[in-house]
Design a protein around this nucleic acid. Structure first.
Lengths: 330, 330
DNA sequence: CTGTTAGCGCGTTCAC
DNA sequence: GTGAACGCGCTAACAG
């Protein structure tokens, strides 16, 4: 293993000089020595030892990213956005996937703390479980006490910089749009009870129906994925419009209705939430609430990197997009 | 920042003892001292400094993963598989996305080398550009010379452990199946010319048509994504069956045909390749060649981690899956 | 079992 | 400009 010292010796200069030319020091080095060092480094095939550098500098060039599931396009999009800004800043990204296990989320924060990453990004809905939230906060606080920066894409419950999707407002806007189409009987494929993202979308939608003087929707719980949508849709009846709290669930619902011989949108309208890119060619095209996921991931990392005194919360508005999966009544 | 030394002093033991209880040493420590150390660590909020540990041990607990694009479900699936085995082994994963820029792939290998990661996983098709391949190999060799382990999901061109999807064979089997349905006039949405995965699929398909005595297919190039499939499908005519070299392109083709008023499968059959999970609810359901992507990612990491004398190449067979997007003729 | 000590590779004051 | 030397936090002999 070639070390800086090898390079220095080979170039006939001091360790310090070699360090200055090879790594981003502010100090200047004479052209001739600089040349020698570069040649020696190239010849020997020198590669900086980042661990040593991190130790000496007391700061790393890595950021941590914790998501639930990379194969869920929602998180893939957020991760992509975050990784683009990381790359632009010359930072590497360490990724942990929790597969929706909150214990694992906490464990990752701890591990990333040990790695002394520059910043940690938490993507994904918070849970109603206050125990879990408290323990996560403790872990985050401990990390932040020693200079760690944290940002979150999701609900503002951790006392850190947060990019908060407008779940309530978006769902409410969607309800309004759907009501505007003439629908009066709704079902909500509501996701799991403990997931705040799902809850907020349900609440925003339901409250808006109230406000419009429409009857309460049928609320059907299930998992937050395709199968959850499918299963819940199986139990739908007597409504003209179904709101799945995310697009992936809506896809499951579409499949369920197809299997049941129920046509969309002729027999029932279906809307989702998120506007997942990979699903844009679905037939019928899915009405949904668009969230700029990549931007949200990027923005969250920017917030984390740009240290501030107190936690900032940035809301992100969802935009209702009506497509072929919902139709006007009468 | 609390260090091991702080903990040791606080517990009234030596640095070595503290190290032994807090980090995974094989050495035993008496119960009473162990207890003291653990209490002290907890009280002080000690967190291992992984950089220091890595430096001292000369080995890190991180693996590197280089993919083209995380938002492409193909890579997301591979990454997910790899990350599951990483997690099982207690390793963290550093991810780099190249966005199909080969320079960036090389740069990431260099950076991961500097990080002294335990292993590097390269996922994604190789290119026909021999210059690029040579430079990548050089960079990999340099990494391997100092103990780095490398594995690749893709073509065996790097001289490293490789999980090689059976692109040719899979495409040939698909051609056979499609011919068995009675199709004789084919078009291939062939992807970019320089991408070997695409090339192999085209070649396997074409050669099998030859072997069956069927006419040459119409070969239409384009990008390897949804838009490439859409664009190429726009130029299709006079055939009964279209083979898109991956599922995402097939989705684009479906959209193009829809826009052109061409019905699938009534007017034209469409098949893809990969069997992307997120697309399984597409209508019409896509005929394709299934690749066990997550397993491939997992297997590649296993290969990399389990050091061997010489590079192993494991072929992975694709399985033809005929669904509703292709129909039998006459 | 437990403690002492010499590095691991590099950044960075300091003097020159 | 350049070099010498100390310290970053931890591991791993080695000695007891």
């Amino acid at each position: 293993m070639v070390t800086l010292e090898d390079v220095a010796r080979h170039a006939g200069v001091s360790l310090a000089t070699a360090s200055r030319v090879l790594n981003g020091s502010t100090r200047q080095v004479g052209a001739s020595l600089r040349e020698k060092v570069e040649v020696a480094a190239a010849q020997l095939g020198y590669r900086t030892n980042v661990a040593a550098q991190t130790l000496a500098r007391g700061a790393s060039n890595v950021i941590g990213l914790v998501v639930h599931d990379l194969t869920d396009p929602y998180f893939a999009a957020i991760a992509d956005g975050a990784m683009r800004v990381a790359e632009r800043q010359g930072l590497m990204v360490m990724v942990g996937t929790t597969h929706r296990d909150p214990q694992r989320e906490i464990a990752y924060v701890s591990t990333l703390n040990a790695q002394r990453v520059r910043a940690v990004l938490l993507a994904g809905s918070r849970l109603t479980d206050t125990q879990v939230t408290r323990r996560l906060r403790e872990e985050l606080d401990r990390y932040r006490e020693t200079g760690g920066r944290v940002a979150c894409v999701g609900q503002d419950m951790l006392g850190v910089d947060t990019v908060a999707p407008g779940n309530r407002e978006g769902a409410a806007a969607l309800a309004r749009a759907l009501a505007g189409l003439g629908h009066r009987g709704f079902a909500i494929l509501a996701g799991p009870e403990g997931l705040i993202t799902a809850r907020d979308r349900v609440a925003g939608f339901t409250e808006e129906l109230h406000r419009l003087g429409l009857p309460d929707p049928l609320v059907l719980h299930g998992s937050f994925d395709r199968d959850g949508g499918y299963g819940a849709a199986t139990r739908v009846s007597g409504v003209t419009c179904v709101f799945a709290v995310n697009d992936v669930m809506a896809v499951g619902a579409l499949a369920a209705f197809r299997d049941r011989g129920i046509r969309v949108p002729e027999d029932v309208s279906v809307a989702g939430f998120d506007d997942i890119f990979t699903l844009r060619d679905l037939v019928p095209a899915l009405s949904t609430v668009r969230l700029p996921l990549a931007d949200m991931g990027a923005r969250a990392l920017e917030l984390a990197l740009d240290a501030a005194e107190e936690a900032r919360v940035e809301g992100v508005a969802g935009e209702v997009v009506l497509r072929a999966s919902t139709r006007a009544l009468g």
